[in-house]
Design a protein around this nucleic acid. Structure first.
Lengths: 120, 120
DNA sequence: ATCGTCTATCGTGAATTAACGATAGAAGGG
DNA sequence: CCCTTCTATCGTTAATTCACGATAGACGAT
């Protein structure tokens, strides 16, 4: 009984973890679900380190629109911005990017899912 | 001159390739930018092979909504559906998934981008 | 042929997103 | 202090997304 309880708990734990992983992956993917935002991340990665509002020059979008895309990426945790004098310096968050890459790489055939109805 | 021309062409080629890669990655990411669609892909992967409308039982969503999510994933190329008698059998498209994983894995520091203004 | 089942599509409404211009706040230079 | 520059935010509009019920098409079974 005690064992069974632990099994249930463990199962519930795994379910919780799956739920979180799903939401996490969806959040990252959604943030990258726009060409401009993909380009922002690639641009920031191409520059060895951070970068400020050259993005506005680089992208054919209004400054406010770029700022909005930056906020979406920042909310998703994929980039970070630090104030640097009158400018802001953005760079990708390596841990978040690695996490995203790990979640995507984990999308492979195999178990890791039960039959129980899932919440979304 | 001819050499320079070839260089220009090559550069233009790379630019085109980047443009396509960006749109491709954004498209895949957008398709996975919803928890229900992430769950669909995971569910299809967990079952060894394809699966039909058990997804409707698995997900707490209306059948029409599930069908819509399936269409989005199919439009993105991430899954394929084949008619199997009165049902439809879905499975992930391995090549597309691998392509997506490759594009995501390629998001790493380094060159691969020029300074020229880009189109979005 | 008719029924029941399974799935896709249509039509709809609420919510979200994308883009912009305009405005406001912060910081440095004169 | 004032001005300029850089960035974030506000407000708006058009477009898209998400979810649903209702409907329609395909197919096997009866």
């Amino acid at each position: 009984m005690a064992v069974k309880r632990r099994d249930q708990d463990a199962e519930q734990d795994r379910a919780q973890k799956r739920l979180r992983a799903r939401a996490e992956l969806a959040g990252f993917a959604k943030a990258l679900g726009h060409p401009a935002r993909v380009e922002i991340v690639r641009f920031l990665l191409a520059r060895d380190s951070c970068m400020c509002g050259d993005l506005v020059d680089h992208l054919p979008l209004a400054q406010s629109t770029v700022s909005q895309h930056l906020r979406i990426l920042k909310d998703a945790g994929l980039i970070e911005g630090t104030i640097d004098g009158p400018r802001v310096c953005y760079c990708v968050a390596p841990r978040a990017l690695a996490r995203f890459q790990g979640l995507v790489a984990d999308l492979r055939p195999g178990p890791g899912l039960t039959d129980r109805e899932c919440e979304v």
